[in-house]
């Protein structure tokens, strides 16, 4: 075929700039993935007892819970939104599991119910933020209030309850699944990680998710259905948050509707520390995993240094503001190109 391929067209060739940007991106992602390693070194040097199987496993269990909670936050941010209903969903799952189990429900039935409720929360988030042009910030905040309120109404504010033994085992640092010496919580997180990354990288849905976050108008014209993407994103997020709520029940053994509260701040921290832009269209859950590990170790470090929870919050706040400043500037440079 003798098409007009004027590839060597001088003005065009001159107009296309050299690709320095990609190298910069690569360098910064290397830093992101190296930061958990650096953090671990700092932690082992300052906090005795971390460098042991139990120490590492307890870190990983904590990271698993945060990691599961942060799946939804990462994807919500990637489509240019945010999910403030994650703590409420965690609380919902936590309360349903403990109270219903205490009432004698079978575990399978409980999981099914929690899954259905999660899907309903996610679907409502997705539909409301698409159909009425509402900002997800407002929608998910309202949803959080609705979910927490409903749980309190349904349980009459009763706390208490019980969990099956294997849930407690799942989050125990010395727990082990199928004899491989890794707690079930960690295995669950790794499986989720594999699926989430595969979806991001290898599926049509994943590409459309990035496209929606990058330019909604263009995405529509390129045959992406924003409603469908949003519903799936918020539903997957709610399912993973429920899994986190279930695992948290294993720690306490009792019901607490507010058990998820710290996860609003920490999921956003993990996403930002991982370097996923809050403007949407870029990032990956892999970066959030790095963010989750750093955040978990940072908190452990502060505890080890006997810094109280209030001061911890101050430190985390400073850390996140610093990071946003750094990444925020990065993004502006990118947009100028």
């Amino acid at each position: 075929m003798s098409t007009a391929i004027t590839q060597g067209d001088a003005p065009v060739a001159a107009a296309s700039p050299p690709p320095p940007k990609r190298r910069a991106v690569r360098a910064s992602s290397v830093l992101v993935y190296l930061s958990p390693v650096a953090m671990f070194v700092v932690l082992t040097l300052t906090t005795p007892g971390v460098l042991s199987t139990t120490g590492v496993m307890s870190l990983l269990v904590l990271a698993s819970v945060l990691g599961l909670a942060a799946v939804g936050q990462t994807w919500a941010v990637m489509i240019g939104g945010i999910d403030l209903s994650i703590p409420a969903t965690i609380g919902m799952a936590n309360v349903l599991v403990t109270t219903l189990y205490a009432e004698g429900w079978g575990f399978g039935r409980i999981v099914l119910l929690v899954a259905v409720v999660s899907l309903a929360i996610g679907t409502a988030n997705g539909l409301l933020s698409s159909l009425f042009g509402l900002h997800p910030l407002v929608v998910t905040l309202g949803m959080a209030s609705l979910v927490t309120g409903s749980v309190l109404v349904a349980t009459d504010g009763n706390t208490g309850g019980d969990v099956p033994g294997f849930v407690t085992d799942a989050v125990s640092p010395v727990g082990s699944l199928w004899g491989i010496g890794v707690p079930a919580a960690v295995v669950l997180w790794l499986l989720t990680l594999a699926v989430v990354l595969a979806v991001e990288r290898r599926t049509v849905f994943g590409r459309r998710l990035y496209a929606l976050g990058s330019n909604e108008r263009a995405a529509r014209l390129a045959l992406v259905r924003p409603v469908m993407i949003r519903v799936v994103v918020y539903s997957v997020g709610a399912l993973c948050a429920s899994a986190a709520g279930l695992l948290l029940a294993g720690f306490s053994g009792g019901a607490s509707v507010s058990i998820g509260d710290p996860y609003l701040f920490s999921t956003i921290t993990a996403v930002v520390v991982g370097g996923t832009s809050l403007l949407g269209g870029a990032g990956t859950y892999a970066r959030t995993v790095a963010g989750v590990l750093v955040t978990t170790m940072f908190t452990t470090l502060l505890v080890g240094l006997e810094i109280g929870p209030n001061m911890q919050q101050v430190m985390l706040g400073i850390a996140i503001l610093l990071l946003i400043t750094v990444y925020g500037r990065d993004r502006h440079v990118a947009q100028r190109l």
Binding site: R207, R208, Y210, A211, G213, S214, N215, R217, A218, A219, L221, A222, L223, V224, S277, G280, G281, A282, Q335
Partner: peptide
């Protein structure tokens, strides 16, 4: 810019999306 391109994606992803 407004209706066509996905600024944060690569050339390949931009081209293949539809």
């Amino acid at each position: 810019q407004e209706e066509g391109l996905f600024p944060s994606l690569t050339v390949g992803d931009n081209l293949s999306l539809a």
